[in-house]
């Protein structure tokens, strides 16, 4: 590791000031991704700004019919929050299947998102929940749907000087299920991750969200599949078709955890299974 400067400010304001004066500074939250990247040399920042002490990044609260999830909330914190469990059990489940308790007690939801790994477990559920990224900088703030946040593996729309402060989650309509396909029980990355949310009215799908992980350069929403489902009644045939369409919509790669061919098939089955579970 080469030498670097380290700051540990207490407020968002100070973070933003620092970012303005040192645009190349790297933020560190839990550090579970960043520390490894620094060790392997893929990240070599001159300046590191720790978010650990920043109060405004924490917490989960209701605000004007929507929820605010602080970017600095740890995954462990998410799994232990009764409020989150009540409103977003699928998200809590997704946090609980990340790595291990040791990782979850450091890793933050903001880090999980900003690291922009295609296989990040929290992203598909948040996409399915229509999460909005609340981004701030010294120049102002902007709210961007999470679906528009990712540009590629490790790449986001965050500009220099900006940080992800929190996520806004609308009052959830309908249930959301996340399934993580990983051969090993603990400490394994998703081969595919599938989040599905359905809002139904008398059996008819009024709104559908299908979000997929580990099957493209970024986690993605399967919009054609969502359209296929909307306005229809779930039948075995429709669920099968939805699975197939989602498989068509993604573009996985071959790697040690599974071939592209296999991943597509897993998408098909998990989409269908999540739909069945939401029946």
């Amino acid at each position: 590791m080469k030498p670097f400067e380290h700051f540990a400010p207490d407020s968002v304001g100070e973070v933003l000031d620092l970012l303005q004066s040192i645009p190349k500074a790297k933020l560190i939250a839990g550090g579970t991704d960043l520390l490894l990247q620094m060790k392997q040399g893929s990240a070599q920042p001159d300046t590191v700004i720790s978010l650990k002490n920043v109060e405004e990044l924490r917490g989960f609260a209701t605000r004007k019919a929507r929820f605010r999830l602080g970017a600095g909330m740890t995954l462990r914190g998410i799994t232990r929050s009764p409020e989150l469990k009540k409103h977003f059990p699928g998200l809590v489940y997704a946090a609980s299947v990340v790595a291990s308790e040791q990782i979850r007690s450091l890793a933050t939801v903001g880090g999980n998102i900003c690291n922009a790994s295609p296989s990040a477990d929290l992203i598909p559920p948040l996409l399915a929940l229509d999460a909005v990224a609340h981004i701030v900088s010294r120049d102002g703030q902007r709210d961007i749907p999470l679906a528009d946040f990712f540009k590629g593996p490790g790449k986001t729309i965050l500009k220099s000087g900006e940080i992800l402060l929190s996520l806004f989650l609308p009052q959830p309509s309908g249930n959301m299920f996340y399934s993580k396909h990983a051969p090993r029980q603990f400490m394994d990355l998703a081969v595919v991750g599938v989040a599905v949310r359905l809002q139904k009215n008398q059996g008819m799908v009024r709104e559908a969200r299908v979000a997929l992980g580990a099957v493209g350069p970024t986690p993605l929403r399967a919009k054609k599949t969502e359209a296929l489902l909307t306005g229809k009644t779930l039948t075995p045939k429709l669920m099968l078709e939805a699975g197939e369409m989602a498989a068509d919509e993604c573009s996985p790669i071959d790697d040690i955890r599974g071939s592209a061919w296999y991943r597509k098939r897993m998408i098909k089955i998990h989409v269908r299974r999540n739909l069945e579970a939401l029946l």
């Binding site: 560190i28 650990k52 308790e101 990782i103 450091l106």
Partner: peptide
Amino acid sequence: DAGDCGACTIQVDGKQRYACLTAAAQ
């Protein structure tokens, strides 16, 4: 030294953590 084996697990404020992924400043 990479968060994959757990041999370095310690308790920080009662919670289990990997010491190899815990920076001093944290």
